[in-house]
Design a protein around this nucleic acid. Structure first.
Lengths: 154, 154
DNA sequence: ACTCTGGATTTAAAAAGCGAACTTATCCAA
DNA sequence: TTGGATAAGTTCGCTTTTTAAATCCAGAGT
């Protein structure tokens, strides 16, 4: 049933694979949930903690990793009458993960939603029709998944 | 710099969010690396183990989880002169994660590749130009990231 | 019977996760 | 200037998970 031919090994060893590197950075439950919250506008330590319900130690470590990796930017904010505190916002590197997380949301809607209407969907401004994550060619036209070919360097 | 307005909480609580559910299933380093290998055609226990270099206990458990979640299908295969053994192939549910992992690969190429030519790239059949992950509207036309709006059910 | 081999489990030490309490720093009010 | 409120972490003791190595198991070939 699988269209994928049998292989004993993947064509790119994990050490030199950028997918494997990406997985090392974001392939973690709490890290992904932090990025999800950040994409929805959560920025502050206690807000992340309340949203995720994870131990503060874990949150602290994951935020530090994400800042070091360049996905989050840490900088002070100040609301009037309050002392300055750090906030964590997505860098352009982090923001560019958005299509992937939206794609994963829609994968979840399709396979894990148990037939219910998804609680959130995505549209183009000024339009009511849904958008979705997909592949496009250089001109911005969609390429269907079965039309994709992998090409090895060399 | 972040275009995302401040929020104290995400609009969809993690318990009812299909993205959070998806993260619960695949948001794990080894699980993602298993899926990566499976997308490249790896099917057998020892091949996964050699590819990932992970403890066999962990591999065994993750494979079981993925079968239970419906992403992998376990069935026997038999090469001539050998006893029957199980192999793990992607179900349609697992195959439909492909755009997401390809998108993540390209994210890694852009941000983690250190300027080197990516070891693997993706094109449309019969074309040499690269494709990329993006959003499209109903007609398959690209929607730029700044034109996307989230819509809550209600 | 004996051996080989691929798939998986057992075991014990190391690592990571967990929750609660504690510390720190600053603003505001008394 | 003292005291309290608040947000961002850190410390601490305990539990769970991961890890790596050894072991088990079933069936095919000899």
């Amino acid at each position: 049933m699988s269209q994928i031919p049998l292989a004993r090994r993947s064509p790119v060893p994990p050490e030199s694979c950028n997918l494997a590197k990406a997985i090392d950075i974001i392939g973690d439950r709490w890290t992904l949930l932090i990025l999800r919250a950040a994409l929805y506008g959560v920025r502050r330590f206690d807000d992340f903690q309340a949203e995720l319900g994870c131990p503060r130690t874990v949150l602290s470590g994951r935020l530090k990793n994400l800042v070091e990796a360049g996905l989050l930017t840490k900088r002070p904010y100040k609301s009037p009458g309050k002392r300055a505190r750090p906030e964590y916002t997505l860098s352009s590197m982090g923001l560019s993960l958005r299509p992937i997380l939206v794609g994963l949301t829609q994968w979840g809607d399709a396979w894990l939603g148990q037939g219910e209407t998804p609680p959130i969907s995505f549209t183009k401004v000024g339009s009511k029709s849904a958008i979705r994550a997909a592949f496009v060619d250089l001109e911005g036209r969609e390429v269907r998944p079965d039309q994709i070919r992998a090409v090895l360097r060399g």
